[in-house]
């Protein structure tokens, strides 16, 4: 019994310590940002890595997710006599949930893991120490560009992904329910509120920050052993996805009260 309590206590303390480290890293990143200490070339390279390089997998994921969703919605909507709303229902779901959340999960798996692996390798090979000895703060040089890249590119990917999903939904609505393009897109124009799109983008901004902070934290705090880089990479993806789901609930309750 005592050992169970001891293990629970240790786990709780470890969790608190992890939250403390994440908060400190986030705070130091924000301080550099407010000071305007941004490495432009590195930031642009990271935006390309997080955004442009993730685009193909986001497009494929969202296209087929939009198609599957439209297939299910069309079936139900036609039964209920609400076929005219298929376009709106697909677009609403894409803007509120699937666009930001699915995109963030794809980016966490692709770019978040790569952030942890890159920074972890740099830690193990003393490149992070080398940065410090050359009077360069690793947070400013490595984390700030990735933070900005996540914060800017994940919302853009979510927006593009949402659009692709809506288009995929139309293909299925057209072929299975015989819906015309005019009817599909008119139902979106008439019913989808601008706030819904804005709220989805706000969510994606938070998700981008979560991916960058967790990925960079796992890399910077990697133990100095090569097998630790692999573990840090896995943890970066798992923790980011878990936190994205938790944040998604919290943000949904705040943004759609």
């Amino acid at each position: 019994m005592l050992s169970v309590l001891s293990a629970l206590g240790a786990g709780f303390l470890k969790g608190l310590s992890y939250i403390g480290e994440l908060s400190e890293l986030h705070m130091r990143t924000l301080i550099h940002l407010f000071r305007g200490a941004v490495e432009r070339k590195t930031t642009i390279a990271q935006m390309s890595h997080v955004g442009v390089s993730s685009l193909p997998i986001v497009v494929v994921t969202m296209l087929f997710s939009g198609m599957v969703m439209s297939y299910h919605i069309a079936d139900q909507a036609l039964m209920l006599g609400a076929g005219a709303y298929i376009g709106w229902m697909v677009a609403e779901t894409m803007a509120r949930e699937l666009g930001p959340a699915l995109t963030a999960i794809v980016v966490a798996a692709r770019a978040g893991s790569s952030m942890a692996a890159e920074l972890g390798t740099m830690k193990v090979t003393e490149q992070i120490d080398a940065l410090r000895t050359m009077a360069t703060d690793p947070v400013q040089y490595l984390v700030v560009p990735r933070y900005l890249a996540g914060m800017i590119m994940v919302p853009m990917l979510a927006l593009i992904g949402g659009l692709i999903g809506v288009l995929g939904g139309f293909v299925i609505a057209d072929t299975t329910a015989g819906m015309t393009a005019a009817a599909y897109f008119n139902s979106i124009r008439a019913n989808l509120e601008l706030w819904t799109i804005a709220a989805g983008i706000i969510k994606a901004v938070f998700f981008g920050v979560i991916i960058a902070v967790i990925g960079c934290h796992q890399g910077l705090y990697t133990e100095k052993a090569s097998e630790e880089v692999g573990r840090a990479t896995t943890r970066a993806v798992v923790y980011a996805i878990m936190l994205i789901y938790i944040a998604n609930l919290a943000l949904t309750m705040v943004l759609f009260p």
Binding site: T125, E126, Q127, D129, A130, R132, T133, A135, D137
Partner: peptide, 23 residues
Amino acid sequence: DEDDLNRVRKSMGMCFQYSALFD
């Protein structure tokens, strides 16, 4: 603190055991 250390580190150089060049 780190800001003052960065000023001091400008007067120092370091060669690491495994070179630590940026790959």
